[in-house]
């Protein structure tokens, strides 16, 4: 029951965040959304992901957005969308969601232990990672050892993004 309530709050926060005219409130609602998401992930037993989301998703993203807002304008100007455009947006969104919902019909039931995602490498990691890596937390073992190159790539992406931001904002007016 609490899971359903949390997911409901997620949807409410997301809608409120994109409908607010004041961008600062919008950013704050996005922060709340990220924290609720972190709670949902704790409920789903993804503890490492939950604290990454709480620190990086809710923390750093909010700070970055507020920093950007401090250099631009706080209020969104009112825009009048032509009805023809609204019709196009509605059609695109309805079509996409129809395709996605059709896709979920073939998905394995939520929590099914026999789902294809739980075969192949996952059981092997759970059985062998302690003797091979020596860390009880399997997520850490996979992240830093088995998929170490993945993490190296991630670090490269962060490095590239940092260089990009420095180069873009270096220019003095």
């Amino acid at each position: 029951m609490i899971d359903f309530a949390l997911l409901f709050f997620l949807v409410v926060c997301a809608v409120a965040a994109i409908q607010m005219r004041d961008l600062l409130s919008s950013i704050m609602l996005l922060g709340i959304y990220s924290f609720i998401m972190a709670v949902v992930w704790t409920r789903l037993n993804a503890v490492d992901v939950a604290f990454t989301e709480a620190s990086v998703g809710a923390g750093i993203t909010t700070i970055l957005l507020i920093a950007a807002l401090s250099r631009t304008r706080r209020m969104e100007t009112k825009q009048c969308v032509p009805p023809a455009n609204l019709l196009i947006y509605g059609t695109v969104i309805l079509l996409t969601s129809a395709v996605l919902l059709y896709g979920t019909l073939d998905m394995p039931t939520y929590g099914d232990p026999g789902a294809p995602a739980h075969s192949h490498v996952a059981p092997r990691y759970l059985e062998k990672s302690y003797e091979e890596v020596g860390v009880p937390n399997v997520v850490t073992a996979v992240l830093a050892s088995y998929r170490g190159y993945d993490t190296l790539g991630e670090t490269t992406v962060i490095f590239g993004a940092g260089i990009c931001v420095i180069l873009l904002l270096r220019r003095k007016i």
Partner: peptide
């Protein structure tokens, strides 16, 4: 644990 690892990378 595998999707958790993938999403840790994706968040960053």
């Amino acid at each position: 644990p595998v999707p958790h690892v993938l999403i840790l990378t994706a968040i960053v």
